[in-house]
Design a protein around this nucleic acid. Sequence first.
DNA 1: GTCTATAATCCGATAGAC
DNA 2: GTCTATCGGATTATAGAC
Lengths: 212, 212
Amino acid sequence: MSYQRKKILAAAVELYLQDGLDGFSMRKLAKQIGVTAPALYRHYDGKEHLLADVMREAHRAFISYVYQAIEAPTPLERFVRAGQGFLDFALEHPRWHVILYFGPEDLGMVELPADIEAMSGARHQFWIDRVRECMDAGILKEGDPTQTGLTMWAHAHGLLQLYRQGHLRIAETEFRALFEESAGRLWSGVATEAFAAQFADRQSDASASVEA
Amino acid sequence: MSYQRKKILAAAVELYLQDGLDGFSMRKLAKQIGVTAPALYRHYDGKEHLLADVMREAHRAFISYVYQAIEAPTPLERFVRAGQGFLDFALEHPRWHVILYFGPEDLGMVELPADIEAMSGARHQFWIDRVRECMDAGILKEGDPTQTGLTMWAHAHGLLQLYRQGHLRIAETEFRALFEESAGRLWSGVATEAFAAQFADRQSDASASVEA
DNA sequence: GTCTATAATCCGATAGAC
DNA sequence: GTCTATCGGATTATAGAC
């Protein structure tokens, strides 16, 4: 990737994170860099290729938050750290989070580039693997990990969206507590009896260590 | 409301349902009615007031799907019918569903009109009341109905969004089955022990009666 | 590689004639 | 109450000079 392309992409990322998709235009981007709009087309074929590169950056950012969970020593800890990373990522970088879910029409394409689809698939698979591990370890009830993982994913996704759209009317600290509580209710539906209570314990421990 | 205002609103509803918020413009609307754009401003102060009226129509449509649940004889049936109505509404009229969640900035306002906020509040309250009833009847675990209701709301909301954005890559019939399954997993986390299995039974009964 | 100029479309909203 | 004409703005993208 040429030096100019890098510079353009860096500015595009900054512009997207500031103004979102609707506020993203080639003219604004050019102005921010200090050139005129047509100059950008020497380096990028069009807005959609540029936005696709911004999506790739979002995936890199996501990876840096979530994939480190693999280093934890136990399936449960890997599971918890993956979930925690997911939540931190979404709350700390909401614009990064939403772009991960963009469809081709959002970028003005008919299909997403294959490599982006592959990154989305890997991201999804990583989570399913964390769920499967916990099933194998007897922590989560037996079943199709894809299904159980989806239930938890949907819950997190929905709660986050309600919060971000302002329907919950609470601040981030309160939302994090609410998220844990709500996840706890779901947990007692998906965990084995032996582990159903453990989540609540872990929460109490965490609260206790914060208070201490 | 004058005759012309009604005619404009009806066309606006049609245009919104067809083209969505992004495809909604005063010029297109005027063309669809057969007048020129400035004529609309004789009857509506601006785009935002028109869109606010479209939101009000969405609430009316929602009510027709969900509030009839109140007629069912038991708390559990009222709960189930409310949930079913919610799902039907969202799947049959996705554009109606998303407009319910619009914030003021989507319409180009600083605050939503008070009556719209009130309708949203009532909609939310209706669901919470269904949850509270089930708690009082010993069907759902004791707790704050707002919290438990939120957990279920978030799950449904998230699952719907993942489906509508195409991340699940399944058709509607399969999605409805998946939704029931996923809701069942959540149910066993929020229901009392005595009723935890009942949901699964109800599902099986429903499937059986469909197959029969 | 970058520029100016411009094409070709969109948008919301208003003034003033009829 | 509707029209024409227009203001003032946005957008992606290209042609052609430098």
